[in-house]
């Protein structure tokens, strides 16, 4: 049995999902030989510490840790002080400066802790440095959950398709935009109406600009370019057009000719723009789904699709990353 002490930083929607999933999968993980112990949960109000593992039921009902915190430690201070093998970083993303996640990841990696994250910001701002920091400290940095949520993409390319040359990846990487475009096309309703519907359903934020202006998709394009294509690019290198200018009439004209209009991110072209996609293309998925077409030299085009967001779904991608860290030596290394 491998004992692994895990600390969680960030207790928002995804943080709750992580606590829930780790608790639900405890038995499965033990059967696998992995004894994951969630020794701390930290948010902007404080930290819950528990050497024998945080009681999920006790904290899942709380929106923040304000009422249940056992320590006032926050952020980097908590990361350095708490003895753990792996940190899960799920604080809110910031694509401009990457904070606070960037500082958290630097502290964890320099302290010899593996990092698993769904937080795009630090990776968009500083992928190269973080990667090097991980290598220098002999630990891993895993971030499957940052792109396409639960849809397998990074591990699919890095592991399953290893040996192929990847010529490009194009896809739908934002469920909010896809939902809005799908509803506009189905009902012929204007953008503003579809947006307010998405906001009522909790699919879009009160300030939707991050999604609808293509910022989120561009961040994912940067992560894919840097991690899978060995590029060294920044957010400003991506040519971005969002979906706010798309009209129901444009969708109808396209549909009549056999096309859907989707917000497509393209690597290595580094573009994000509304694009005509043939209706019968496997990447022309509807609703909040994400999809990606991976163009390879040996395997042709591989298409994946799945839920791009959601508390439990994102936590699932995080769980997969955690397991893969401890499985690495068994199945993936060349001896």
């Amino acid at each position: 049995m491998r004992d692994v002490k895990v600390s969680l930083v960030g207790f928002g929607v995804v943080g709750h999902g992580v606590v829930d999933v780790l608790s639900r999968k405890k038995k499965l993980l033990r059967d696998m030989g992995l004894n994951l112990k969630l020794v701390s949960v930290t948010d902007h109000t404080g930290t819950v510490l528990a050497e024998d593992g945080v009681d999920a039921e006790k904290i899942l009902g709380e929106r923040t840790l304000a009422n249940v915190a056992t320590s006032g430690m926050k952020g980097k201070e908590a990361i350095s002080a708490i003895d753990s093998d792996l940190m899960i970083e799920v604080t809110p993303t910031n694509i401009v400066h990457g904070q606070p996640g960037l500082g958290h990841m630097e502290a964890a990696l320099s302290g010899g802790k593996h990092v698993v994250t769904s937080n795009k910001g630090p990776l968009v701002v500083s992928y190269g440095k973080l990667k090097k920091l991980a290598e220098d400290n002999g630990v891993m940095l895993k971030f499957e959950a940052t792109v396409g949520g639960t849809m397998p993409l990074i591990s699919l390319v890095e592991r399953t398709l290893v040996g192929n040359t990847i010529n490009g990846i194009r896809g739908i990487f934002n469920g909010t935009c896809n939902y809005i475009l799908t509803r506009m096309a189905e009902e012929g309703i204007p953008y503003t109406h579809a947006l307010s519907e998405a906001q009522d359903l909790g699919i879009a934020e009160a300030d939707p600009s991050y999604d609808v202006e293509g910022v989120d998709t561009a961040g994912k394009v940067v992560i894919l370019a840097n991690s899978l294509f060995g590029m060294d690019v920044k957010y400003s290198d991506v040519d971005v057009t969002g979906i706010t200018g798309v009209t129901p009439e444009a969708l109808a004209l396209a549909k009549k000719r056999g096309y859907a209009i989707k917000l497509i991110g393209d690597v290595p072209a580094l573009t994000v723009r509304p694009t005509l996609v043939p209706l019968d293309s496997p990447i022309a998925v509807s609703g909040t789904l994400n999809s990606a077409a991976i163009y390879t030299d040996l395997s042709g085009t591989i298409t994946v699709t799945g839920l791009g967001a959601g508390s439990i779904e994102t936590a699932s991608a995080i769980l997969t990353d955690i397991i893969s860290i401890y499985r690495t030596k068994l199945i993936d290394a060349i001896f």
Partner: peptide
Amino acid sequence: LLVIEPIEAEAV
């Protein structure tokens, strides 16, 4: 004008 181009069938 917003120019919406088709996705290319293959990556170049």
